[in-house]
């Protein structure tokens, strides 16, 4: 593919959430080092379809262009992927672009992923500090603790793990792997652990941890290689433990 002189893209377009979708095809001059976002930029600079019809630039989300802001997740050749790190040289053509399928479409390739942020609120994904005044350093931590926390803390909220999860849908209301992994992160932080019970309680019942069928699609797709199945099983264990101890408490 690397030496072909043009790049063909098929893009699923949808003018707004109520409109029906349709496909458009584009042909762009090939340049070395292209990625899907640079293709979308080229289309914006010359919004004409392959058969010569004038059209509108594609609406999509992006910001960092180095796979750290989590904006640009979409389906690329049917696979959830960050568009900025999807190099044209490594993609089969025609390159097929669609919006993530599990989230409401805003327009074209842009979807609404607010649900993740709401779920992070629901599980209190933060360290409850007393205030911003000077209280000296935080709790001492070993390198091992830091090396366990850091990978979890690299989640970019892209929602790819939710897109590919068979259990993530309206029926189950499942929170998804990213949120479970954040619960693990904050429950293992010495100060964050203060809210552990509340977090686990939020994960009991419908939409909680019980929905996960351990299909492991999530861990395979995660662009940041976050150890999601490990997080899920640890949180599942903690929820179980919490449920049992609650039983004895009452």
């Amino acid at each position: 593919m690397a030496d072909s002189k043009s790049v063909i893209l098929q893009i699923k377009r949808q003018a707004n959430p109520r409109e029906k979708s349709h496909w458009e095809e584009f042909e762009l001059p090939y340049k070395p080092g292209m990625n899907v976002i640079s293709c979308l930029m080229d289309i914006a600079a010359n919004p004409v379809t392959r058969d010569g019809k004038a059209t509108t630039p594609i609406t999509y989300d992006s910001n960092c262009l180095e796979e750290v802001c989590g904006s640009c997740a979409m389906l690329i050749n049917r696979r959830a992927h960050m568009a900025c790190s999807a190099l044209v040289d490594r993609l089969e053509q025609p390159i097929r672009l669609e919006p993530l399928s599990k989230f409401p479409v805003v327009r074209d390739l842009a979807v609404d992923r607010q649900v993740l942020f709401e779920n992070l609120k629901a599980v209190k994904a933060w360290v409850p500090i007393d205030g911003t005044y000077d209280l000296g350093p935080g709790p001492r931590m070993t390198s091992e603790q830091q090396e366990a926390a850091y990978p979890l803390s690299r989640c970019i909220s892209c929602c790819c793990c939710m897109e590919v999860c068979p259990q993530f849908n309206e029926k189950t209301g499942f929170v998804g792997a990213a949120v479970l992994s954040q619960v693990r992160l904050f429950n293992t932080h010495p100060t964050g652990a203060a809210l552990k019970r509340e977090r686990l309680a939020a994960l009991m019942g419908d939409g909680g941890i019980q929905e996960c069928g351990y299909a492991q699609n999530c861990v395979e797709i995660c662009p940041k290689d976050i150890p999601l199945t490990r997080s899920i099983s640890e949180v599942a264990g903690a929820v179980m433990h919490h449920a049992i101890s609650d039983l004895f408490r009452t």
Binding site: P137, G138, R140, T142, Q145, A149, S153, T191
Partner: peptide, 22 residues
């Protein structure tokens, strides 16, 4: 220095020395 301490308290996983300091 106090800003770093605050961020540390907020849970930023700063790299550590063998002694567990920043």
């Amino acid at each position: 220095p106090a800003i770093i301490d605050l961020l540390d308290r907020m849970g930023v996983p700063f790299n550590r020395t063998p002694e567990g300091l920043l």
